[in-house]
Computed example of a mutant assay.
Amino acid sequence: MDTNWRMAITATRHCLTGCAIGEILGMLLSTWWGWGNAGSIALSIALAFFFGYLLTYTGVRRAGADGRTAAQAALASDTVSIATMEIVDNLFILVVPGAMAAGLDTTLFWWSLAVSLAVAFVAAVPVNHWLMARGKGHAVVHRFHDAHAGQH
């Protein structure tokens, strides 16, 4: 496997972490609160973007960037990846019979959520590979880290 594919897998895994935190929290809260499908999906998507951006923002800040630079890097690197994962993830949940109505205490709820995230990961890897090959997406963050590493 070449380096570009490895980097795309690593970048996607990073995005998946933020998406998973947001998705799980969104599904837990909306199910607990008895929200319908639209509210559940909206909250899960909003939290997936929030946590996805937050993880990148935090990492870039730790690397020494100011808040504005870190926010710009997070938006540039994560938007398409998270959007891809959220579209695939939510479509999967919507097509699994009973998944949207499943309670927190059911195997169907957790199975469909886990599989939807796995399917979203597989869908986003080639998207991230394509973006990174063009110097976009997570390549933005990698360039920042590379430039910062050279300062030490």
Rank of each mutant, 00 (worst) to 15 (best):
K136E: 09
F109Y: 15
L117W: 12
A139M: 06
H129S: 08
G150M: 09
F109M: 11
A124P: 15
T106R: 01
D105N: 15
G137Y: 03
A118C: 10
D105A: 15
D105E: 07
A133E: 08
L117N: 13
R134K: 14
V115P: 05
T107R: 09
L104V: 00
A123S: 14
A124T: 14
Q151D: 12
L117T: 06
F144L: 12
A120H: 06
G137C: 10
A147T: 10
A123Q: 01
L131T: 05
P97Y: 06
P97W: 08
Q151E: 05
A124M: 15
A120N: 04
K136V: 08
G150V: 00
G98D: 13
K136C: 01
G150A: 15
G137H: 10
A149K: 13
Q151C: 01
A99E: 12
H145M: 08
A120L: 00
V140K: 04
V140P: 13
L113R: 09
K136M: 11
Q151N: 05
D105Y: 06
T106E: 00
S112M: 06
V125G: 07
F121W: 08
V141A: 13
H138L: 00
G103N: 03
P97I: 02
A124F: 08
M132Q: 13
L104K: 04
A114H: 10
N128I: 01
A147P: 05
L113Q: 05
H142P: 00
R143G: 09
L117Y: 04
A99M: 12
V96L: 09
S116C: 07
A120W: 05
W111A: 06
T107G: 09
M100Y: 04
T107C: 02
G103M: 00
D146A: 15
S112P: 12
A99Q: 13
L104G: 14
D105H: 15
D146Y: 02
A139F: 05
Q151T: 11
A120C: 04
A123V: 01
G135Y: 07
A124S: 15
F121E: 09
W130D: 04
V115E: 06
H129K: 14
A120Q: 03
T107H: 07
A102G: 06
L117F: 09
F109V: 06
F109H: 15
G135Q: 09
H129M: 11
G135E: 05
D146F: 07
W130I: 01
H142C: 00
H142T: 02
S116Y: 15
T107V: 11
S112L: 01
S112H: 11
T107L: 10
K136T: 03
H142N: 05
V96N: 11
T107K: 02
H138F: 14
A101C: 02
V125H: 06
P97H: 01
A139V: 00
A114C: 11
W110K: 11
G103D: 05
A139G: 08
V141H: 03
A139C: 07
V122M: 09
H142L: 13
H145T: 04
G150P: 07
G135A: 04
A133R: 13
A124H: 13
G150W: 04
A118Y: 04
L108S: 10
L131D: 08
N128L: 07
V140R: 09
M100T: 06
M100K: 06
L117P: 06
Q151H: 12
A149P: 12
